[in-house]
């Protein structure tokens, strides 16, 4: 999977508006000439974009896997905490409320999206908690209700806007994309993902036991409450950073964990790493496809993830006789 991701990344470095062959890509990376616009495009535009696509895909798939394990529900994805709707609201509010979107050299929408996702997630978690104990079913319902409410508020501020340009910005942001990827922003989601992967590599057994249900997990010595809180905090932070930079790309967090379980089994040892790598590769391929099919800007990546991913997902469900737990 790593080799495949590497191969597709190298192929992706060739794809763009400047005509670049492999020697040019090589030189851009290892004999970089800052004055050559093609070298600049390879190193500063294409590579961060590809890495962000991998990072966001991996983050969403990984968080989807965690959420499905936590609530023991096949329909869970990272967005059930209201992360996507909160981020969309934050970004939309920012687009409509501020004339100048860059303050002190900082582009505000990703920060507003991050803030929105955290605030909504905290409210959903608070609503899903009783006496300090997380109640997954209550949290799911709170997530659905709050997502609807925030969605309505986002629609309202969109409707009240008189600027066609701002409408375009909001709509495109909501469909997801990696065009604004940069070396400056990449470390945030990448660091969050790496740390989270590291933590959960040591907690994989706990996750598998959680799939048996909270009661049996407790009987087997798992501190269910603590595990749930760790998952919740991880998912909020990792998804928040991913969504803030790329917009809420749908479906990856739902289907890739199922693909992983379908291919490696429900409690496979390498499930988490494989899930993250598959999510990254899947998103990378979707981004490249979107730009090949509809150059130069590409289709919104969320459209491609659904068009490309759903048929494969359905095939997997039917052919493998796959069950969630």
């Amino acid at each position: 999977m790593l080799l495949l991701t590497f191969g597709v990344t190298i192929a992706g470095l060739k794809l763009g508006s400047f005509d670049t062959d492999f020697p040019t890509v090589w030189n851009a990376l290892f004999n970089h000439n800052a004055e050559d616009p093609a070298h600049f495009a390879v190193l500063h535009l294409r590579l961060p974009r590809l890495l962000l696509a991998i990072c966001v895909g991996a983050s969403l798939a990984f968080c989807g896997y965690l959420m499905q394990a936590m609530v023991n529900n096949a329909l869970a994805d990272p967005y059930i905490l209201g992360t996507a709707s909160g981020a969309s609201f934050g970004a939309s509010f920012c687009f409509f409320a501020f004339t100048n979107l860059t303050v002190f050299g900082i582009y505000l929408p990703p920060f507003a999206a991050l803030l929105g996702s955290f605030v909504v997630t905290i409210v959903v978690v608070a609503l899903g908690t009783r006496s300090g104990q997380l109640i997954p079913s209550q949290m799911l319902l709170a997530g659905i209700a709050l997502t609807s409410l925030i969605g309505a508020l986002t629609s309202l501020i969109t409707f009240l806007s008189s600027s066609e340009g701002k409408l375009k910005s909001v709509i495109f942001w909501a469909m997801g994309g990696f065009e604004k990827a940069s070396w400056e922003s990449l470390p945030y989601p990448a660091t969050a993902l790496m740390l989270a992967l590291l933590v959960f590599m040591f907690m994989e057994k706990r996750l598998n036991v959680l799939l048996l249900g909270p009661d049996r997990a407790k009987m087997l010595g798992v501190n269910v409450a603590q595990t749930r809180w760790i998952i919740l905090i991880t998912v909020s932070v990792v998804t928040g950073f991913a969504v803030a930079l790329s917009g809420p790309v749908g479906f990856v967090g739902l289907i890739i964990p199922h693909v992983t379980r379908g291919l490696l089994g429900i409690t496979g040892k390498l499930n988490l790493i494989f899930c993250a790598l598959t999510g990254g590769l899947f998103m990378l391929i979707c981004d490249l496809l979107s730009r090949i099919v509809f150059p130069p800007a590409g289709l919104p990546v969320g459209v491609v993830t659904s068009l490309f991913g759903v048929p494969f997902f359905v095939y997997l469900l039917l052919k493998k006789n796959y069950k969630f737990n």
Binding site: G16, S17, F18, P37, A41, L45, L101, E179, P296, A297
Partner: peptide, 25 residues
């Protein structure tokens, strides 16, 4: 819709902005 790379490759001698486009921003 264009990408940053496409605009770089075009390398226009003039850029005009309309609507909410603010040059510095």
């Amino acid at each position: 819709q264009l990408t940053r790379e496409y605009v770089l490759q075009l390398n226009p001698g003039f850029i005009f902005g309309i609507s909410q486009v603010q040059n510095e921003a």
